[in-house]
């Protein structure tokens, strides 16, 4: 079965204001795409909508994943199909340990029966621990992470590494990284970038959303897209990031006659 993520002519509004205005994009398993754009271009709206955030209204268009239109599905159903979103601002869940949360999440996603119902089908503790420990070691994450409460009191860098750990455990086919580099210093970007690059392979398609090319030094995309005013206005390869680094978004705005908002 095709595990591609296919976005067709997607229109999204927030509180009746159009944000995404006819977006087309296909991310195939094993490919790495970068979607770049300035603040306010609609990047996070797209990322959250693809995962099914209730705040966003889909006006028209299709998002096909695993061969089915996922726009009517709940976020957990999308997750079970193999879609993952690494959040720009991961939410803290006080009192819930990373390990307990991940065990339930991994069990739910692997059950893939549409309606995982809690403790009855949890993967065995021993098996889960072994896997968690191996993945944390691979990503250079300290064992104590497993006992900490999910994102509660985490530094910016820790939150992003926690997202990458979840990505590693949930083993999705397509992962969207929403501004994973935001709020991080150069060292933290390197750590996160190297972690992600370890997970990349033929089984994983990645859509990296960013306005800042630094992360891409560690995760080299094959495809680069530029998002301006809710549409992809340029698609190309690595050279686009070089051009952005040198000249910024203004030449592209002028070329497409888009005024800054």
């Amino acid at each position: 079965m095709s595990r591609d993520l296919v976005i067709k002519d997607l229109h999204i509004s927030v509180q009746e204001k159009p944000i995404i205005k006819g977006l087309n994009l296909t991310v195939k398993q094993g490919e790495i795409h970068a979607l770049m754009g300035p603040n306010g271009s609609g990047k996070s709206t797209l990322a959250n909508s693809l995962m099914g955030h209730p705040l966003y209204d889909i006006d028209s268009g299709e998002v096909i994943f695993n061969g089915i239109d996922i726009l009517e599905l709940e976020p957990n159903e999308r997750a079970k199909l193999g879609l993952f979103l690494a959040f720009q601002y991961p939410t803290a869940i006080p009192g819930v340990s990373m390990a307990n949360f991940l065990r339930l999440a991994v069990s739910a996603v692997r059950a893939k029966d549409g309606n995982g119902s809690g403790n009855d089908e949890l993967i065995p503790m021993r098996e889960f621990r072994r896997e968690l420990r191996a993945k944390m070691k691979q990503l250079g994450i300290d064992d104590s992470f497993a006992r900490r409460y999910l994102n509660d009191g985490f530094s910016g860098g820790e939150k992003k590494r926690a997202e990458i750990l979840q990505l590693a455990m949930l083993e999705p086919q397509i992962a969207i990284l929403d501004e994973t580099d935001s709020g991080l210093d150069i060292d933290a970007i390197r750590v996160v970038g190297e972690s992600v690059s370890q997970l990349i392979g033929p089984e994983l398609g990645v859509l990296i959303i960013t306005h800042y090319p630094r992360l891409l030094d560690y995760i080299r995309p094959q495809f680069v897209h530029i998002l301006l005013d809710g549409q992809i206005v340029e698609s190309g390869g690595w050279e686009l990031t070089q051009m952005l680094e040198a000249e910024g978004y203004d030449p592209i705005r002028e070329k497409h006659d888009i005024t800054e908002e």
């Binding site: 709940e74 939410t91 869940i93 949360f101 339930l104 999440a105 996603v109 309606n115 995982g116």
Partner: peptide, 30 residues
């Protein structure tokens, strides 16, 4: 129970009920 907390947990495969339960259990963890 915040919409953002629910969305976050549901995006990891938890049903709405599982997500709410997890948030409540976390709340009484102390």
């Amino acid at each position: 129970i915040g919409e953002e907390q629910l969305f976050y947990l549901m995006s990891r495969g938890l049903s709405e009920e599982e997500a709410s339960t997890m948030i409540v259990n976390g709340f009484i963890e102390p």
